[in-house]
């Protein structure tokens, strides 16, 4: 399988190391969030409802689909397998989270006391959605876009697969 990247965008050793940091940072937070949301889908459904963005039937789907998507994206990012696709998806998720948090900050009639980003757990930011969550997600979005642009780097399964000699390269007898 040929690499997705043109030769000039193949990352060097230092950039590869940085891309590992980016991948693990995004995967760590998404995986942590997924773990807590999957523990209690009912609570996550009520949390989505509080944002008053989606109709009820989409809340039902989202309460299960979002955490499973987060979990799979986290897994693929950690392994570095299909990492660019996973990075695009994580960027999409993070943009939607930023939009949701910004919308409750703007709409005075919507009161959301808990972000529910990580279920009941609180890391980095307080429970109440605010600028801290937007900055946190923007940083993760930047990390995701770096992985989407440069790929997962040399320390990844994608790189291993791309570097593996193909049967066509075998010396002819």
């Amino acid at each position: 399988m040929a690499s997705d990247l043109p030769e000039k965008r193949q990352p060097g050793a230092l950039l590869s190391l940085w891309l590992v940091v980016c991948r693990f940072a995004v995967a760590g937070l998404l995986g942590f969030a997924a773990y807590h949301k999957l523990q209690d889908p009912q609570e996550f459904a009520f949390a989505i409802k509080a944002y008053k963005i989606l109709p009820d039937h989409l809340i039902h789907v989202s309460a299960f689909a979002i955490p499973w998507l987060e979990a799979l994206v986290a897994l693929t990012l950690v392994m570095g397998l299909w990492a660019r696709a996973a990075a695009f998806l994580s960027a999409g998720l993070l943009v939607s989270f930023i939009f949701a948090i910004a919308s409750v900050m703007i709409r005075a009639d919507v009161e959301v006391s808990e972000c529910s980003c990580f279920g009941e757990a609180v890391i980095i930011c307080d429970k109440e959605p605010g600028w801290c969550h937007i900055i946190q997600n923007t940083v993760l979005l930047a990390f995701s876009l770096m992985v989407a642009y440069w790929g997962p780097g040399r320390l990844s399964m994608d790189h291993m697969v791309a570097s593996a000699p193909s049967p066509d390269d075998a010396p002819q007898a």
């Binding site: 997705d4 998507l69 994206v73 299909w82 696709a85 695009f88 998806l89």
Partner: peptide
Amino acid sequence: TSVMRAFSII
């Protein structure tokens, strides 16, 4: 390829 893979993950 990445788009197809993204849809596969979804």
